[in-house]
Nucleic acid binder design. Structure first.
Lengths: 185, 185
DNA sequence: CGCGGTGTTGTTATATGATTACATATCCCC
DNA sequence: GGGGATATGTAATCATATAACAACACCGCG
C-alpha cells in the first residue's frame, strides 16, 4: 500500500528545502536584494510541506519564542518573495508555493490536486502561446497570465477514497490551505 | 472623449439581464433544479454592472425592506449558480460574473482588465487543447481548468491615466471588487 | 392526513485572507 | 555621522468565506 505523501517521487525533503534556500540566497545576492532572516524563514516555511500553504498557516509557524508575529510581517515577506519569483501565489487557493526555478521568468501554470492539495508547476509553451495569441486578437495587453487547473493528480487517482490530506502525517502543521473545495468523501 | 463604461459595444443592458434570467429559468426547469427567488435575485445582481462583482457587493444590494441578509445566504446562492454554470467565479478577483452561454460546458477563460475590472470571457480551443495535453502527459485528470489573464483591455489602453473605475459612474454600487491590484494612479 | 426525507433558508459566530496608517529601526551611501 | 531608502513593529480594520445548528417547506407515500 503506497502511502506516498508527495505527488512526485520520494525525495530528500531537507535537501530540497535547503537547496531552495541556497538558490534564493544566491539569486538575491546577484540582484542586490536582501533575503533577510524573516524573508528567509517565510521562504523556508513556504517550502516546508512542499505544497501550497496559506499565509496564516505560515503565520502560525512563525511563533518565535512564544511571540506571534503580525500578519503584515508575513504578507510583506510573501510580497517580496513573489516579486522576486521565489514563490508563486496560487489565486484559486489563496496560497503560496515555492518556485523550483526562480532564476528565469515563469508564467505560472499549475495543476492543482483537489484531494491532496499539491500543485504541480507546468511551463507549457503551447499554452502560453495560445493565450498570447488569443489576447492579441482582442487587443488585450497581458500583464500576467494565470493558469490553474483543478483536478486529481496521478497519486490520488489511485487512492480508493480521498478522505482528506495524507501529507498531514508528515508535518502536523501542513494542513490543507484549500478552502474552496468541498469534501466529497 | 470616450466614456464608454463597457469594454464591449454599448448594449441594452436591461434586455441583456432579463435575457439571462429567462435563459436561467428555462435551464433550471429543464434540469429539475429550482431557481428560487433568492437565487434569482443573486443572479440578477451578478449580472447588474455586467462585470465581476464580489459576494459582499451583492450582499449589500440584497438588503430587502431594510433587512440585510446573511453572507451565507448569498454564498449558498452563488454556489448553486456556479454549479449550474450560470455564473463563473473569478479566482484571481474573488468575484463572480454571469455566464453568457450557460447551456453548454465552458472552460472559463478570462481576460481581466486591471484598470476597469471588466472580464472578457474567452473560449479558445487551442488553449483548452494545450492544457488538456499537458495535463494528460502528467497523468493529471482535469476537473476544471482556470485561465485568468490579467492585463489591460483595449479601452483602457487608450485611456491616458487609469485612475480607478470608470464604470462607477453607471451604477454607484458597482465598485471595484478587485483587491489584489495595487493602485498605480 | 400525517409521516419522514430532502432541500432551502435563517441565525450566530468565527476562521481566514489582506490592507491601512503610523511609528520605529536598520543599513548603506556619501 | 547625517540622511535617505529600506525593513520591521504595532494596532486596527476591512474583506472573504465557512461552521454548526435550528427551522421551515415541499414532496412522495402509506
Amino acid at each position: 500500500m503506497p502511502t506516498t505523501p508527495q505527488t512526485t517521487i520520494h525525495h530528500d525533503h531537507d535537501t530540497c528545502v535547503s537547496g531552495a534556500l541556497t538558490r534564493a540566497e544566491a539569486l538575491c545576492a546577484s540582484r542586490g536584494t536582501k533575503l533577510t532572516p524573516i524573508r528567509r524563514q517565510v521562504l523556508e516555511l513556504v517550502w516546508s510541506g512542499h505544497r501550497p500553504r496559506g499565509a496564516y498557516a505560515i503565520l502560525d509557524d512563525m511563533k518565535v519564542d512564544g511571540k506571534r508575529v503580525a500578519p503584515l510581517t508575513v504578507y510583506r515577506a510573501l510580497d517580496f518573495l513573489v516579486e522576486n519569483g521565489l514563490v508563486h501565489r496560487l489565486e484559486s487557493l489563496n496560497a503560496y508555493i515555492g518556485c523550483p526555478s526562480p532564476d528565469h521568468a515563469h508564467p505560472g501554470q499549475f495543476l492543482v490536486c483537489r484531494d491532496c492539495g499539491d500543485a504541480i508547476e507546468l511551463n507549457d509553451q503551447r499554452v502560453s502561446a495560445a493565450i498570447a495569441d488569443s489576447a492579441r486578437a482582442r487587443g488585450f495587453q497581458i500583464d500576467r497570465p494565470t493558469v490553474e487547473v483543478r483536478g486529481l493528480c496521478p497519486v490520488c487517482q489511485n487512492r480508493p477514497h480521498p478522505s482528506h490530506s495524507p501529507a498531514d502525517t508528515e508535518r502536523p502543521e501542513a494542513r490543507q490551505p484549500v478552502t474552496r473545495q468541498k469534501a466529497e468523501s
